[in-house]
Design a protein around this nucleic acid. Structure first.
Lengths: 266, 266
DNA sequence: CACGCTAAGTTTATAACGTAAACTCTGCTG
DNA sequence: CAGCAGAGTTTACGTTATAAACTTAGCGTG
């Protein structure tokens, strides 16, 4: 690199960066933000250590390890950071249903901002602090209506399953749209036509008919409908109290003691 | 390899395999069966081309490519083969609800035999012939009650979302149990205790209380409950017909025409 | 019988991934 | 000034999927 006898003049100093500001540039929050931005832009599989480091400047992939310990650690941080963005009230409000509807809507909006969330969620244990806070709120809302914590756990799990399942499905569709380029009409219609061909070949008239003109509820309507079904079901259970005035004593007959590793957060 | 001047005698011929029966040993079905067995035993990430080839005998990973074209192709075949194992009646029976309950139960049993199924399902487009057959049956059952194909699509999607979501959650728990060795008490309790510590540290009393004695509905009860909620919701919609005597003409006001890439199978 | 074609598998090579271990700076402090 | 610690890089290794070239077995045909 030394210009010992080169014909080129030495490059003017001021064209080079004035000095690498060697003062703890990197940090957990920056790294996680870069990873989230990358996942937002290009999807979950685009999150590689190299790509995240590159997005932060001219860093080597190994530079991240000092801060996030491993890729799984980075994913955990991403998930909890995204969860932190869904607002959770400090206390349940007057209407338990409104509370859960609002939380569900906020969570869904988060998964729409971060389509990778449902994809990565199921690859890691859900033990982040913000996930816990969110779950605690759901439990508070439900136990406030007199059900046991165990039942509240079940209801929360059903709701989160629906939210994440919806997001997962839409994330997959988005992924396929991306694969076939950004112009929908071209490749997407081709894939649809191929499916239609298979459906008619297999003698599936209803499916083929739908594929020929695929109309129906929007993802949004579908989400709302499923959520309504679940909340309606919970309503029935709440209005049929098993013990009078929200009895505090344990109810061992409520459910078997199985399901040790159960989890329910999102 | 020639025993030119070695002191060892030439190995007796009959200790060596008599002759490689070079007559089309491999085939799609064998490969897919091996991959499914591997995934059943060791989980979805254990399915690598090398491992599958090894399970079939002393094959090179590249031997599979002639038959399955790529790993994604192999996964597609695995998914459809597993789907083929859930029995689908040729015609809807007298009770639509019994039909859907039976199909859901059979599907769930399949996902319990193949915990990798929900994991891999969301990585591939659901266009396999047996998936289509299964979906066609659900559509037949529901449209037989007078709803449009579009609405039937929505209901089917909600049910499958619940089935696969349940399986996904349980698959994750199984994965964690495997990671911490097979003896539950040792590592699993430690992980639980760690979560409990975090919950108390974060001031989440309800969650901490539950973690201290984690009891509640079994996964089976949870699944049944969620399914009941969904079917109850669908029941309400069915018993409130929007058109008299299952009108055949299209109902464009049923839902917006959005949701082009929608899919609903399982 | 010799020839060559084709199907079936293997070998080799490449690019990308996560990450352990060793190394190289830089700036501060005793 | 010595050296120490923190920040980042380089190098290296084991995996993964898979393209491309090569090898071998068996069959049919001149």
């Amino acid at each position: 690199m030394s210009p010992a006898s080169g014909t080129e003049p030495a490059p003017p100093i001021w064209t080079l960066p004035p000095a690498p500001p060697r003062q703890r540039a990197l940090g957990r929050t920056e790294i996680v933000a870069a990873a989230i931005g990358l996942a937002d832009d290009e999807g979950a599989p685009a999150v590689t250590m190299k790509a995240v480091a590159g997005r932060l400047g001219s860093y080597s992939p190994m530079a991240l390890y000092r801060y996030v310990h491993s890729k799984d650690g980075l994913v955990d941080l991403m998930l909890d950071a995204a969860t932190a963005a869904v607002p959770v009230p400090g206390q349940p409000g007057p209407s338990w249903r409104a509370d859960l509807e609002a939380l569900a809507a906020q969570t869904r909006q988060m998964t729409q901002r971060h389509p990778w969330y449902p994809v990565l969620f199921h690859t890691r244990p859900p033990a982040g602090p913000h996930m816990m806070k969110r779950l605690e709120f759901m439990l508070a809302v439900l136990t406030g209506q007199g059900v046991s914590t165990a039942s509240a756990m079940t209801y929360a799990a059903l709701i989160d399953r629906h939210i994440l399942g919806s997001g997962l499905q839409e994330a997959e569709e988005a992924r396929m749209s991306r694969r076939y380029g950004l112009d929908d009409a071209a490749g997407l219609a081709a894939g649809l036509a191929e499916m239609h061909r298979l459906a008619t070949a297999g003698d599936f008239p209803l499916l083929a008919g739908w594929l020929a003109r695929p109309e129906g509820q929007s993802p949004e309507e579908q989400f709302e409908l499923g959520l309504r079904f679940l909340l309606d079901g919970i309503t029935v259970r709440l209005s049929r109290p098993r013990r009078q005035w929200r009895g505090r004593r344990a109810r061992p007959a409520d459910g078997s003691s199985r399901g040790l590793g159960r989890r329910a957060s999102g």
